[in-house]
Amino acid sequence: MAAEKIVVPGDKLPASTSADAGSTFVWDGALRASVAGIATGSSVRASRKRSAAASSVLSVGDTVVGRITRITPRLAHVDILSLGIDAPLRDPCAGILRREDVRPAEHRTAEMLEMHRCVRPGDVVLAAVLSLGDSRAYYLSTAANDHGVVIAKSSEGATMKPVSYCEMECPVSHVREKRKVAKPPGM
C-alpha cells in the first residue's frame, strides 16, 4: 500500500498522524516515531510483536493468578503466575497475602481468619493487587467474592470442588476442607 511506509526511531511522521497515536513523540515541532514499524496514515504500528504480559509490571487493582507456596499464621506467600487469566508472566514474581486481606471485613472472625482454613500451600488463587508492597513482594487481597481459591487438591490428591464460600469437597473421599473459595463464574 502506497500510504504505508516503514519508519525508524526519529523519523518524522506525516502530518495526518494523530498526535496521541502510540509509539510517537514530538521533537523540534514535528511528530516522530519512537519505534521501528509502519506508519499507516494515522498511527505507527511497531514491527516488533510483544506479548502483552512480557513487558508488563503489575499495578494496583490488577487481577492476578498465583500459587500459594508457604503459609504462616499471619500471611501466605504467593508466586504470582499470571496477570489476569490469560497473560502468563515470564518470571513469576512474589506476592504476599496477609491474614487481614483474605476475607471481606464482615467475615473476619477469629476462626475464619486462621490462615490454614483459608488457603493451603499448592492452592491456586485468584487475587487482586492491593498495593505495590515492599521491596520484595506485592500485597494481594482475596476479599472480593470472586477472588479466592480456584484450584485446590485434597489430601487424596484429587482436585476438590467448591461447595460453599468456605468449603471445598474432595470427589474421592468426600472430605470437606476449609478454604476461602472464589465464587465460580456464573453462580
Binding site: G10, W27, R32, V35, R48
Partner: peptide, 11 residues
C-alpha cells in the same frame, strides 16, 4: 534496543 521495540527518540 530497536529490535526489542523499546521506544527511543533517536539512533
Amino acid at each position: 534496543l530497536i529490535d526489542a521495540g523499546i521506544a527511543m527518540e533517536d539512533f
